[in-house]
Simulated scan of single mutants.
Amino acid sequence: MIVLGIETSCDETGLALYDTTSWENGAPAHQGILGQALHTQMAMHREYGGVVPELASRDHIRRVLPLLEETLKQAQCQLSAIHSVAYTQGPGLAGALLVGSTFAKSLAQGLRLPTIGIHHLEGHLLSPLLGESVPQFPFIALLVSGGHTQLMLVSGVGRYQLLGETLDDAAGEAFDKTAKLLGLDYPGGAAISALAEKGQSGRFELPKPMLHSKDLDFSFSGLKTAVLTQVKKFEASGGAADQSALASFHADLARSFVDSLVAVLVSKSEKALKQTGCKHLVLAGGVGANKQLRSALTISGKKNHFEVHYPPVELCTDNGVMIAFAGALRMLENNNGSTTSGAFDIKPRWDLASNNLS
């Protein structure tokens, strides 16, 4: 069975073809990826310091058909070979989701194929199954992205329990806001991570919000505010006039920010594993590509005797592969997804657990 995946939840347009044959025959799941194409809108939105929904929607319209053609060419596949179409139904930007839903439903109706609406976060948390080290169910999933920071207990495909989530800014938002304070371009995750590698630990005592709370929730707005306080202090001292001192200040502050955020994510993950008895942790989402976070989780795994699983770096950000793959797994679970109707139904706000299989 060949599934076409379409991802248009925010600022990436991703399409991919996934063949379940390899998975069903016991081969590594990543061998089922026949082809994929991705366009990111980062350069377009950078001018505005963040995603502009209307511009994102218009760009998806322009990109989706050429990307489909590129995917088919890469996979050496004809439209007639596709068995079903999976698309991101939510959560995300309403206009962007509508583009993907409309395209998926129209294409499927023309080819007389079933469609399957996929939860964006389900795509992320199942994507590590496409890596070299495949986690065993049940596992804990740490989802960290621009819009979400959550800990989920994953008992199987379509069986998810929310354990904790952010009460304010997600980790990705904290990265972007801190990057802006340090004069770095949007998006800030990769830029902050690279700058932190040049900095020294311990210069700034930044808070580690909710590190010792008894729950598994997160909060990162206070960390961002602490960075702002340090920036104002430095500017008031006149240090910004010295370019060398300014560069050192930015690098050291970036390092302290990353150290604090990573410490909270690792600690909460350890607690979730201990509370559930799981021995496998999955890291997923755009921030899952962060080098410092990966390194800290790997060290913690060796120390505390649990295995950490990562998706391929290229599949950490939004992409069509994760949607095609999640759609394929849903099909193999004998479930036709959240919709097979012709309606262009999208869910900009959507609780993952509400989409569990019965």
Rank of each mutant, 00 (worst) to 15 (best):
T229R: 15
E270K: 13
S237P: 03
A284V: 11
L261M: 15
V258F: 00
A289T: 04
F234P: 01
M210S: 02
R203T: 04
K291N: 13
L261W: 03
R255E: 04
V231D: 01
A289W: 02
V231C: 14
A226I: 05
A263F: 01
V231M: 13
M210P: 01
E235D: 14
S256W: 01
G238C: 07
H250Y: 07
S295Q: 15
G238K: 08
A251K: 02
L246Y: 14
G222W: 09
V227L: 12
S260E: 10
L223M: 13
E235C: 00
G277A: 09
T229K: 14
Q292F: 09
F257Y: 10
S260K: 06
L283H: 05
V227Y: 05
H212P: 00
E205H: 03
D242Q: 13
F204C: 00
S295G: 01
V282T: 09
P207A: 07
A236E: 15
A251W: 00
F218H: 10
D215H: 13
G288F: 08
G277S: 11
D259V: 03
T225C: 06
V262Q: 08
G286A: 10
S219P: 08
V262C: 12
A272I: 06
T276V: 07
R255M: 04
A236F: 06
K271C: 04
F257G: 03
A296S: 15
L273N: 05
A241F: 02
A296V: 09
L211Y: 09
F204V: 00
L216S: 13
H212I: 01
A296G: 06
G288P: 03
T229L: 14
M210K: 13
A245Q: 15
V264W: 07
H212V: 01
T225L: 05
K214A: 12
G288V: 06
A240D: 10
D217A: 08
K291Q: 14
V262K: 08
D259N: 13
V227S: 08
A245T: 12
V266F: 06
Q275W: 04
A240H: 11
H212W: 04
V266A: 08
L206S: 00
S248W: 02
S269E: 10
Q230N: 14
H212Q: 13
A245S: 14
G202C: 00
F249V: 02
H250Q: 15
V227M: 12
S256N: 15
K279W: 00
A236H: 13
L253V: 07
G285C: 12
G222C: 10
A226L: 06
G239W: 10
Q230Y: 05
C278F: 04
S237K: 11
K279F: 01
Q275V: 03
S244F: 05
S248I: 13
S237M: 07
N290E: 11
V287C: 13
R294E: 07
S213C: 09
D252M: 04
G277Q: 10
E270Q: 14
S267Y: 12
